[in-house]
Design a protein around this nucleic acid. Sequence first.
DNA 1: GTATTTAACTTGTAAAAAGCAAGTGAATTT
DNA 2: AAATTCACTTGCTTTTTACAAGTTAAATAC
Lengths: 138, 138
Amino acid sequence: MVDKKTKNWAGCPVRFGMSQFGDKWSFLIIRDLMFKGRKYYNEFLEAGEGISTNILASRLADLEYNGLVSKHQDTIKRSKYIYNLTEKGIALMPMMLAMIDWAEEYDSQTEVPTEFIKMLRENPEKLQKELLEQLKQE
Amino acid sequence: MVDKKTKNWAGCPVRFGMSQFGDKWSFLIIRDLMFKGRKYYNEFLEAGEGISTNILASRLADLEYNGLVSKHQDTIKRSKYIYNLTEKGIALMPMMLAMIDWAEEYDSQTEVPTEFIKMLRENPEKLQKELLEQLKQE
DNA sequence: GTATTTAACTTGTAAAAAGCAAGTGAATTT
DNA sequence: AAATTCACTTGCTTTTTACAAGTTAAATAC
C-alpha cells in the first residue's frame, strides 16, 4: 500500500518541477519547442501568446540555465540563435502529453488536431516515438 | 504523420492548462490534495512551502471556480471546511505522476519514497488505482 | 452564558515581478 | 558605407505577491 501520508518528500518532485519550469511562459515555450517546431526567439515572440521581450529572454535564460533548453548559433544563418530542447527537456513529453489529454477532455474550446488526439489515446507510444524523431532530426 | 507545424491550436490545451492551474502554488495545492492527504486550509498553510494566507485563499478560490477542487463544510467539525479534488482535478493524476517520474530522474535531491517510484515505473496502473481509491474513500 | 480559542480567511502596505515602449549593439544584407 | 535584421536590454508603469495584522463565525472552556 502506498504511503500517502508521507509528509516529508524531503526534496519534493513537484516543488523541483516548479523551480525548473513552474510558470505559464515556461510551459508555453516548452510547448512551442516540443510540438510546434518553433526554435528561434522571434518565433516564440510571434507565437501570439503575448509574451514580452524581456520575459521571453528571461525565461529562455532560465530554461537554459536549468538544462532544459540549449542555445546555439544557427549554422545556416550565423546571426541567429537556435533553441532546442535538451534530453532533459524532451523528457517532459509524457507530462505535456498528459496535460494535452486532460485539456482535450475538459475544455470544449481546446482544438487539438483529431489525428493527434486519436493517436495519443490509441497508440501513445507511436505518437511519442514520432514526436521524438522529429525533435532529434532537427 | 503528426502535424507538428500546426500553428493554430485555436484553443491550445497547454494554454488552457495554464489558465486553470498554471502557477507554482496551484500545483503544490494539487500535490497536497492528490498525494499528501491534506484537505484543510490549515494543512496547506502548514505544508511548509511558505505560501501566504491571502495567496492560498486566492488559489483555492480559483481552483474551486475552475472546478478542480470542491469545498464543503466538514461534517464532523462543522467549523471547518474540507477541500477535495473533483473528478476533473483527479484527472490530472497522470500529468502529476509524469512530473514526479521526471523529477526523480533529473533531480538527485528529490526523495520520492522508493516504493512509490518503483511502483510508478513497474506497475503504474496499480499505483494509480490505489491512489484513486484513497481519494474516493476520503 | 460569557470568554477564550480555533479556523479561515480579509485588509493594508511594501517589495517583487510582469507588461509595455523604446533603445542598443552586433552581424548581415543592400 | 548605410540600412536592416535579430536578439536582446533598459526604464518606467502596472499588477501581483509577500508579510503582518486584523476580522468573523463557530466551538469549546469555564
